[in-house]
Computed example of a mutant assay.
Amino acid sequence: MKHLLSTFLFAALLISCNSSDKSKSTSAESTDVDTTTEAVAKIEKQLKTIETNEDLIATALMAAPAESRATSKVIGYNMAGEFVTLKEGDSEYIVLADDPKKDGFNAACYHKDLDPFMARGRALRAEGKSADQIFAIREAEVKSGKIKITPGSTLHIYYGPNTAYDVETSKVDGARLRYVIYTPFATSASIGLPETPSAPNHPWIMNPGTHRAHIMISPLENEVE
């Protein structure tokens, strides 16, 4: 009887050890798979810091519609700090590259009809004018007809906290888009949009009743890839 009991106990101990070893093995395999997956993801993404004028052009063009990137003009500060034309183009879009001297990433794409308005703002800023002064000067110039803003002209802003990008896709790590549709002197009552977003992802009107009245559209952030 004692011999039979000992046999049962030995068998139970053997099964327990095997189960424990299998559990440890499965756990180790799972960790190896997770580590390998992370390593592969990093290799596939191939993030590169923006360090050259070519990097500035590639990342700036992500603000433009895909079908127009090859033919869009790119302007902005080069790596030497000079405001230049980085890439010639003849599409309806002008792309403003990220300023490499500033933290984070911010590129913009706008319809060429907005260029006089945008250029005037840059010139006044270069003169040392404050944001309020720039607003007042352009308000007067739009009202007088010196500067024209075509209703419906759109600004695409591609922005984010990082300055590294995927060399395969040119997407800036963590960057996203938002849109501005200019509607000069429109109000909430005249176009039927609230002055604050009703919910995330909903359009609203900003600066109503002024030359800078515009519809804001901020799409929800994409899931992390």
Rank of each mutant, 00 (worst) to 15 (best):
D166I: 03
K48R: 15
T187H: 09
E54I: 03
E51N: 13
H156D: 02
A64I: 10
A175P: 05
S16M: 09
L47H: 04
I157F: 00
E92L: 09
N162H: 12
A213R: 01
G174W: 02
A136E: 14
T26M: 11
N162L: 13
L177M: 15
A64F: 10
D166C: 12
G209F: 07
S25H: 05
I75N: 06
I191R: 09
H214W: 00
E44T: 12
D21F: 13
P197G: 08
I157P: 05
F8S: 09
F83D: 07
A97I: 07
T7Y: 09
R138T: 07
E127Q: 15
A60F: 08
S30Y: 11
K129C: 07
Y182F: 15
L114W: 01
A140P: 00
A108S: 14
A66I: 11
G209P: 08
V224H: 15
M79T: 13
P203D: 06
H3Q: 12
K143D: 06
H156E: 03
P65L: 10
S25R: 11
P116K: 07
I134P: 06
A131P: 00
S30E: 12
H111S: 10
S130D: 06
T37P: 00
E44K: 15
E51Y: 00
M79L: 13
I137T: 14
K42D: 06
T59Y: 01
S218P: 01
Y159G: 01
A80F: 03
E54C: 00
V142A: 06
A175R: 09
I50P: 07
R138N: 11
E54Y: 02
T37D: 12
I50F: 03
V167W: 10
S91M: 07
A41M: 15
F83G: 05
I217M: 12
K42I: 01
L124G: 02
L56I: 02
Y93D: 02
L96M: 13
E92N: 13
